[in-house]
Design a protein around this nucleic acid. Structure first.
Length: 950
RNA sequence: GCCGGGUUGGCGGAAUGGUAGACGCGAUGGUCUCAAAAACCAUUGUCCGCAAGGGCGUGCGGGUUCGAAUCCCGCACCCGGCACCA
């Protein structure tokens, strides 16, 4: 296989052929013109982007399209990157022709670790290299002819953008979640409620009696952004904590492959868990792919169940467990606490009780020794290591708890199959009806009573549906009840006895929001002499990053788990130590030295597109409402179409929804969701080839032999399929495509390769098909010999009218559904028809050019101009199908015998059933196939089908 | 292990209960040309047949239906997410 682009041999031919050179001249000319005329500028209702005379455009429909904005990598683009950008551009151009006011722009997600690491290597400031990368990317993308409003582009590192990212952080910091009203409210209202006694101070204290520090601590416990000591991923070799997504499955850092340890460190968290229910429930109100909704639902992981208290004689505090199966409470035969659970120490007895099973002791002489050993071993393991070994291990604490429903004494264990981070970190074990508990019980010789009986089932553990058995005490009986009924019965009983209550827990955890990095947004936070975090006033925003001597955090030996992170900013003393007047005179403060994670900017950027230059607000309410506000009663509002890869299904999309909802609660936006419709594009993949040593060889120099083997330099190589990447030596760049074919051909090819949501392999040699198509369209309008326009005002033949209007009808449907591959196929068919019939009538050519415009906009503009138009085709009305031409004069009717096609008839579309039956039964081949057999039934679906059953 | 998506010519794909393979690549033959490239025309699922026509065919096995790539049941394989979540 050769993937070297074929250069069109045009220099030797007349200058009127649509070659790559001509395409380039056309494309550059129109790109300049679009820019100078502001063709894609979208008017705003108010502010600096409002326009005189735009009232009409603002009154009609609006359409806000967004791409998941790119990270400006230094490597440049390959042909896979623009796929989504081309698709959204096609949609935007189509909507403009439909009369919508279209907002489409592209910003840059420019903070992040790669730029910082590059800065560490080169010593150059990441801002410098990042801005260079953005400039290079802008150049590559401009050459694609994307219809973006350039005035609305920004980068998340722009001080003006950072300012609002920090402003939003302050909004979140200064807000708390009111569970009763089920929305966030300003923290000032909480303080007011404490002051006037409308709300009880936690712990029963009197507000007025508390010191300033104590009050701050109480308030901080409510904030939606708060500091807490939390277990985080600490990579000493990198010198930074990492987000979960930056840690590989085997517990190492994605970058650098350093070991990662779980450490308790004081970090910023966002109280996203307060929004768990709304984030979950509002998924039903947005138009997203079902798999993405499901991933978010699973991630949030809401489960209904109960908290149940188990008393332990001699211990003040009961063990509280969470269970989703309170109906199996009578079957609880032991308990398990996570190794990190607070009560473990209190539960650990001095000596093994009389007759303790040898398997329970871990071979230790006393419970204290066994527990200490077990906890130490658990602590030394990473989460991943813990999960690797699925064999159940654990040790007995020496204590027994009392099962509240039957008073039975059940042993309490510590085992690492119970996780501290979920539920209460303690469980009641029901081995009869839980596979994990069953395994543990088997290893430790514990009883496995049955309390649920399924129909026709007799093996334990049984986790299916059934009715409760052996589940009664003097006061309550579950026997005979279904699982669901038994749950509500026992919860009612527990609540009555004060032994537990129905509850809901979530898998979702609060969002770790700080990083020990240089290249991120600084927090607008300082600490006073009591270490109380204090928000900087809006007037002090943005807090700029100081220049630092070294962009790298302090790094350690990769396995030095006990080392402490030291962010680069902490080393800039003159920046950290600052004197400010925050209302009570100039005082010394200490700045927060962590920075925000890469997700911050992308959590609200949809808002900034609507009002990108606003100095006073993150977006004027009128602009936000116009572009994002709900258009139907009860709607969520949000971006009309958001296109991007499925890899952001959970994190980015969840974070952005969370911030948007906080801003909604606080009255800053009218939309409840950031993205109303989401579409996941597929990826362009590529083949890569390795030689016998496993080294990648240049893919474009590999040839395929007739027997399907692959060869490079006379050596056999193996083919693999996957990503395009420098190290895989299989990168094809847009620049190569512009050079060899032009941007329009590249765009058409990418859109015609297959459905947008499916990944597919890149094949350079197939691009020529799209070029041939555009050349045929070109020839319909332009005489290649003379360059003259060939279009006439000739009337169209009936057959052409039919093809044309059926094409318009079909293409419109495809455009609405984003089926660009089939839309292009229909345009090719129309073009082939017009070519074959030598049609030159304007009435056929102009609709074709218009329908082509979203895909090949430069070519369409050029042809449109040659057809005599002086205005851009961008706002020319999209063709409409005339119903009278949609019905063909003759249709093909298929005649089947026993469901197999045996003949075809040309009939009028309004043929009657009887007529059609008669025609079908007279068809010679049908007669021969029936061969005199008795006709039992004739199914007629006039005018398309007749099926004869014999 | 659980959840989700997928499997159609040599290749990318089309068809969502009614002509399987639209459109494109590649391949083969032809026109033009001194020749080649480009362009254009024709053929191209597979097997049998001179042809007319017929058999087989949408991962595998079953079912529903006059009729199934499409709906249902079971299985295999590939891709993605989650993974001791109580």
């Amino acid at each position: 296989m050769t993937t070297t682009p074929q250069h069109s041999a045009s220099t030797t031919e007349s200058g009127h052929r649509y070659t790559s050179e001509l395409a380039e001249r056309i494309e550059l000319r129109w790109q300049d013109r679009w820019e100078s005329e502001g063709t894609f500028d979208a008017p705003n209702p108010v502010g600096d982007l409002a326009e005189d005379g735009a009232a009409e455009r603002l009154e009609g429909d609006k359409y806000f399209i967004m791409d998941m904005f790119p990270y400006p990598s230094g490597a440049g683009l390959h042909v896979g990157h623009p796929l989504g950008y081309i698709a959204t551009d096609v949609v935007g151009r189509y909507r403009r022709m439909r009369g919508d006011n279209v907002l489409h722009a592209l910003g840059y997600d420019a903070f992040g670790l790669p730029a910082e690491l590059y800065a560490v290597q080169t010593g150059r400031h990441p801002r410098e290299t990042t801005l260079e990368n953005i400039a290079n990317m802008r150049r590559q993308l401009r050459r694609l002819g994307l219809g973006h409003d350039p005035r609305r582009s920004f980068a998340t590192i722009d001080p003006d953008f950072v300012r609002w990212t920090q402003w939003i952080f302050l909004q979140i910091f200064n807000a708390w979640y009111d569970e009763e009203l089920d929305r966030a409210r300003p923290i000032s209202e909480l303080i007011e409620e404490f002051e006037n006694g409308a709300r009880d101070v936690p712990g029963g204290a009197v507000w007025a009696d508390l010191s300033a520090k104590e009050r701050a601590d109480v308030i901080d416990g409510y904030r939606l952004a708060y500091l807490s000591e939390a277990p985080v991923n600490w990579a000493p070799g990198l010198g930074t904590v990492l987000a979960n997504e930056e840690v590989t499955a085997d517990g190492r850092s994605e970058r650098g492959n350093f070991p990662v340890f779980r450490r308790n460190l004081k970090q910023w968290q966002m109280r996203i868990t307060a929004y768990a229910d709304r984030l979950l429930d509002d998924l039903d109100r947005v138009d997203w792919p079902e798999p993405v909704k499901l991933m978010q639902r699973n991630w949030i992981g809401r489960s209904h169940g109960a908290h149940v208290q188990f008393e332990v004689p001699g211990i003040d505090e009961p063990i509280v467990v969470f269970t989703t199966r309170p109906d199996t409470l009578f079957g609880a035969s032991y308990m398990v606490l996570a190794p990190e659970h607070d009560l473990v120490e209190a539960l650990t007895t001095d000596a093994w009780p009389e007759g303790t099973d040898a398997r329970w002791t871990g071979g230790a002489a006393t419970p204290a020794e066994a527990i200490a050993g077990y906890r130490a071993a658990a602590a030394a393991k990473s989460d991943v290591e813990r999960q690797e070994n699925k064999e159940k291990t654990g040790v007995f604490t020496g204590s027994f708890a009392i099962n509240p429903v039957n008073g039975e004494r059940i042993p309490v264990f510590v085992a690492d199959y119970v996780l501290m981070g979920y539920g209460t970190g303690a469980i009641m074990a029901v081995p009869g009806h839980d596979e994990r508990d069953f395994e543990f019980a088997e290893s430790f010789g514990l009883p496995t009573p049955r309390v649920v009986q399924g129909e026709g089932e007799d093996a334990l553990p049984f986790t299916g549906d059934g009715v409760a058995v052996n589940s009664a005490n003097d006061e309550v009986s579950l026997n005979g009840l279904t699982v669901a009924d038994a749950k509500s019965r026992i919860i009612a009983w527990l609540e009555e006895k004060g032994q537990g209550e129905g509850t809901t827990t979530y898998r979702l955890r609060d969002w770790l929001f700080s990083r020990q990095r240089y290249w991120g947004e600084p927090f607008p936070i300082v600490y006073d002499e009591n270490d109380v975090p204090i928000a900087l006033p809006e007037s002090m925003l943005p807090v700029d990053l100081p220049d630092v001597p070294d962009y790298s955090p302090r790094t350690y030996a990769p396995d030095d788990a006990e080392s402490e992170p030291e962010p680069p900013l902490a080393r800039v003393r003159e920046w950290v130590e600052v004197e400010l007047d925050l209302g009570d005179g100039p005082k010394r403060y200490r700045r927060e030295t962590n920075t925000m994670p890469n997700w911050a900017g992308s959590s609200w950027y949809e808002l900034r597109y609507t009002d990108p230059h606003n100095r006073d607000r993150l977006a004027d309410p009128a602009n936000e409402k116009y572009w994002l506000g709900p258009r139907t009663p009860g709607g969520t509002g949000g971006v009309d179409l958001y296109v991007g890869g499925v890899e952001h299904a959970v994190l980015h999309l969840l974070y952005a929804r969370f911030w948007h909802k906080v801003l909604f609660d606080l009255g800053h936006v009218t939309s409840e969701e950031p993205f109303h419709r989401l579409f996941n594009q597929g990826y362009i993949q590529a083949y890569a080839y390795t030689d016998v040593r496993g080294t990648y060889v240049p893919a474009d120099e590999v040839t395929e032999a007739d027997d399907g083997t692959y060869w490079y330099n006379g050596e056999r190589v193996e083919r693999e399929y996957g990503k395009m990447g420098k190290s895989l030596k299989n990168v094809v760049t847009p620049d190569e495509m512009y050079e060899a074919y032009g941007a329009d051909t590249f765009r058409v090819y990418e859109m015609s390769m297959g459905p947008l949501d499916v990944s597919r392999p890149w094949e350079t040699r197939a691009v020529v098909g799209s070029q041939r198509f555009l050349q045929r369209v070109w020839r319909l309008v332009v005489d290649e010999e003379t360059g003259a326009t060939r279009v006439t005002d000739d009337a169209l033949a009936p057959a052409t009218l039919g093809v044309l209007h059926r094409t318009i009808d079909g293409v419109r449907g495809d455009m609405e559904e984003l089926r660009f591959n089939t839309a292009i196929a229909k345009l090719i068919e129309l073009t082939n028809h017009l070519t074959k019939e030598s049609v030159t009538g304007r009435a056929a050519i102009e609709p074709l050019v218009k329908m082509l415009a979203p895909f090949a906009p430069h070519l369409a503009e050029e042809l449109w101009e040659r057809l005599g138009h002086t205005e851009t085709i961008t706002y020319a009305p999209y063709p409409e199908a005339d119903a009278q031409y949609l019905v063909a004069e003759q249709v093909t009717c298929v005649v089947q015998v026993q469901g197999k096609v045996r003949g075809k008839l040309q009939v009028s579309p309004d043929v009657s059933d009887d007529e059609l039956t008669a025609l079908a039964l007279a068809e010679p081949n049908v007669v021969r196939t029936i061969d005199g057999r008795e006709i039992r039934k004739v199914i007629v679906r006039a005018p398309k089908l007749v099926n004869v059953v014999v």
